Lab assay of single mutants.
Amino acid sequence: MEVRTIKVFTTVDNINLHTQVVDMSMTYGQQFGPTYLDGADVTKIKPHNSHEGKTFYVLPNDDTLRVEAFEYYHTTDPSFLGRYMSALNHTKKWKYPQVNGLTSIKWADNNCYLATALLTLQQIELKFNPPALQDAYYRARAGEAANFCALILAYCNKTVGELGDVRETMSYLFQHANLDSCKRVLNVVCKTCGQQQTTLKGVEAVMYMGTLSYEQFKKGVQIPCTCGKQATKYLVQQESPFVMMSAPPAQYELKHGTFTCASEYTGNYQCGHYKHITSKETLYCIDGALLTKSSEYKGPITDVFYKENSYTTTIK
């Protein structure tokens, strides 16, 4: 009895394709271990004539594949690729409408935090270190965002349907971005203890939790000093293409032309909904596939993004 075979390709990165001759009487799992086709788990399936010449994702289970996976995804987590594939199996079914010149995501599976993050990423200057993220990001900007969303979920250790947080998501993504040249110098002034300067680099240099107003941050924000008295913390120097200011959701007025974009969060910790506000020729609110415009805006804002380049204080 002759062994019926077909020729397929296996890959971990969709760049390096490895030619395989597979036995049609055995499952993919018996031949390769966990195997995925377009995100779908085909591990328990036997090869079919229609699979001839198709590319299958496999887990990096030998040295060659491990090197290829690390170079593309910059992670050695053995569960990463499987999590990416199972997320992709959902995100490829989502709709990605162009809204006001940006790629958004039609609401499904509690994905409003991903839509808000995706919209924000198209408006701030950011370059990702893992080629996987950078490639998928370019495709997302062009309207094909399924891979990018699935990668975000995998890097953030999230599953489809789980509630997510924009600030946490951005923080994970910033860790995989090139923020080497970003720098922030802060000064804390206390009447009792004097003053202390701190220099922050990388992710810490672009994120701040405690106030939404970048102007206020430049002037000074009140913080408790270690001595128990009130101290003032203010920005001395900022070198970065953008800054992200966050605070627990509270009524906040966004003035046209003073910011790049913002995240609105309605609801409580267990259950809520994100919308995205962007400042173009007027203010726009993007909620999944829905767009509304207004000249002014007041609502429960939790993150505001500002364009920056270089700032030095005039406070002496």
Rank of each mutant, 00 (worst) to 15 (best):
V3K: 10
R4G: 14
I6N: 04
K7C: 07
V8W: 00
F9G: 05
T10C: 12
V12F: 15
V12N: 11
N14R: 12
N16W: 03
N16I: 14
N16K: 13
N16C: 12
L17V: 06
T19H: 10
T19G: 11
Q20N: 08
Q20E: 10
Q20T: 12
Q20R: 14
Q20A: 10
V21I: 13
D23Q: 10
S25N: 10
M26C: 12
M26L: 14
M26P: 10
M26W: 09
Y28A: 00
Q31D: 07
F32C: 13
G33K: 02
G33A: 01
G33C: 00
T35I: 12
T35L: 08
G39P: 01
G39E: 12
A40N: 14
A40M: 09
D41M: 06
D41Y: 03
V42K: 09
T43I: 09
T43F: 04
K44T: 15
I45E: 15
P47K: 01
P47W: 00
S50P: 07
S50L: 09
H51M: 07
H51S: 02
E52C: 09
E52K: 10
E52T: 12
G53Y: 11
K54A: 11
K54G: 07
T55Q: 08
Y57M: 06
Y57A: 08
V58Q: 09
V58H: 02
L59I: 11
P60Y: 03
N61R: 15
D62T: 12
D62P: 07
T64P: 09
E68P: 04
E68V: 09
A69T: 07
F70V: 08
F70R: 11
F70Y: 09
E71Q: 10
Y73A: 01
H74Q: 13
T75A: 09
T76Y: 11
S79F: 04
S79V: 13
L81N: 00
G82A: 14
G82V: 10
R83K: 09
M85S: 02
S86K: 14
S86C: 10
L88P: 00
N89K: 13
T91S: 02
K93F: 09
W94T: 01
K95V: 15
K95D: 11
Q98F: 09
Q98A: 09
V99M: 09
V99W: 12
V99S: 05
N100E: 09
L102W: 07
L102G: 00
W107T: 15
W107C: 14
A108F: 00
D109V: 03
N111M: 04
N111Q: 00
N111R: 01
C112T: 10
C112H: 08
C112D: 03
Y113R: 05
T116D: 09
A117C: 15
L118E: 04
L118H: 02
L118M: 11
L119K: 02
L119V: 07
L119D: 13
T120N: 05
L121H: 01
Q123F: 02
Q123N: 07
I124A: 03
E125T: 10
K127S: 12
N129F: 05
N129P: 01
P130G: 01
P130F: 01
D135G: 03
D135K: 07
D135W: 00
Y137H: 03
R139D: 14
A140T: 05
A142F: 11
A142W: 03
A142Y: 10
A146F: 01
N147L: 03
F148D: 01
C149W: 06
A150G: 05
L151Y: 02
L151R: 01
I152H: 03
I152G: 01
L153Q: 02
A154H: 02
A154V: 01
Y155C: 00
C156N: 07
C156T: 13
N157L: 00
T159E: 14
V160H: 05
G161F: 05
G161Y: 04
G161D: 01
G161N: 05
L163M: 12
D165I: 15
V166D: 02
R167T: 07
R167S: 12
T169E: 00
S171Y: 15
Y172E: 13
F174I: 05
F174K: 01
F174G: 00
F174D: 00
Q175K: 14
H176A: 05
H176M: 12
L179R: 02
D180C: 08
D180V: 07
S181A: 13
C182R: 03
K183A: 05
V185E: 01
L186T: 12
L186K: 06
N187W: 11
V188G: 14
V189E: 14
C190F: 03
K191I: 03
T192N: 06
C193P: 07
C193S: 05
G194V: 01
Q196C: 11
Q196V: 10
Q196T: 14
Q197R: 14
T198L: 13
T199N: 11
L200N: 09
L200F: 11
K201E: 14
K201Q: 08
V203W: 13
A205K: 02
V206Y: 06
V206A: 07
V206S: 02
M207R: 08
M207C: 14
Y208A: 11
M209H: 15
G210R: 06
G210P: 05
G210A: 05
G210H: 01
T211Y: 03
T211K: 01
T211Q: 02
L212M: 05
L212W: 02
S213V: 05
Q216D: 13
F217Y: 08
F217L: 12
K218D: 05
K219A: 14
G220D: 06
G220W: 02
G220E: 08
I223P: 07
I223Q: 09
I223K: 07
P224I: 14
P224G: 08
P224H: 14
G228L: 06
G228F: 01
K229F: 09
K229P: 03
Q230K: 10
Q230E: 13
K233R: 11
Y234E: 04
L235R: 01
V236L: 10
Q237P: 04
Q237S: 11
E239Q: 12
S240V: 03
P241K: 08
M244W: 11
M244N: 05
M244G: 08
M244F: 07
M245K: 03
M245F: 11
A247F: 02
A247P: 00
A247R: 04
P249S: 09
P249A: 15
P249C: 09
A250R: 08
Q251D: 15
L254E: 06
L254M: 10
H256R: 12
G257C: 06
F259N: 09
F259M: 01
T260I: 10
T260R: 05
C261S: 02
A262Q: 00
A262P: 08
S263R: 03
E264K: 08
Y265L: 13
T266Q: 13
T266E: 14
N268P: 09
N268F: 06
N268D: 07
N268Q: 09
N268Y: 09
Y269W: 14
Y269M: 15
G272F: 11
H273M: 04
H273F: 03
H273C: 07
H273L: 02
Y274E: 04
Y274F: 13
K275C: 06
K275N: 13
H276Q: 07
I277N: 01
K280R: 10
K280Q: 14
T282C: 11
Y284F: 01
C285G: 04
A289T: 08
L290K: 08
L290E: 10
L290F: 14
L291R: 08
L291I: 13
T292A: 10
T292C: 12
K293D: 10
K293M: 11
S294C: 14
S294R: 13
S295P: 15
E296Y: 14
E296F: 10
E296A: 13
K298N: 12
K298E: 10
K298S: 12
G299E: 06
P300V: 15
P300E: 15
I301R: 06
T302D: 04
D303Y: 01
V304G: 05
V304N: 05
F305R: 05
Y306F: 05
Y306G: 05
E308K: 08
E308M: 11
N309V: 13
S310D: 13
Y311E: 06
T312A: 14
I315C: 14
I315Q: 15
